[in-house]
């Protein structure tokens, strides 16, 4: 497993842990009302689980498992891969907290833009690696 995959998969696992925590807090609130504000965690929960966990895990596994090149750089452009990792996490944090806290819509927009750029970097990284094995 490459260092990029280790960072991406471990970050995805962290988001999964946070996603479970936020989900548990909201479910607790439904069963044992403590603070109605807990239900406002929903957009953060969805952002963490769908993009922070599921999408990021898929990216991390793809960085690791897609066919490599026979010559260096064997894993393709790692710069694009790291850019995708950084942009995705900036995006998830901005979009998630922006929706949760209801702060300036610009933060949410910035988050979505960063996520879009992350996906673009990921596609550019992965595209040439989707090929027959070897070569």
């Amino acid at each position: 497993m490459t260092r990029l995959s280790v960072w991406t998969v471990r970050t995805a696992l962290l988001y999964l842990g946070l996603g479970f925590l936020l989900g548990a807090l909201m479910l607790l609130q439904k069963g044992l009302p403590l603070d109605p504000g807990l239900l406002r965690l929903l957009p953060l929960h969805v952002e963490f689980v769908l993009l922070g966990w599921t999408l990021q895990l898929a990216m991390g596994i793809a960085f690791w498992i897609l066919p490599r090149f026979s010559q260096e750089p064997r894993y393709g452009s790692l710069r694009l891969g790291w850019s995708a990792y950084l942009l995705l996490n900036v995006g998830v944090l901005c979009a998630g907290t922006g929706q949760w806290l209801g702060i300036s819509p610009a933060v949410f927009l910035l988050g979505r833009l960063a996520e879009l750029l992350a996906c673009l970097c990921f596609v550019l990284h992965a595209w040439p690696r989707v090929k027959p094995t070897g070569g």
Binding site: F20, G23, A24, L25, L27, L28, K30, G31, L32
Partner: peptide, 9 residues
């Protein structure tokens, strides 16, 4: 729901 939340977490 409380038990469910704790177990899943």
């Amino acid at each position: 729901l409380v038990v469910s939340a704790v177990l899943q977490l």
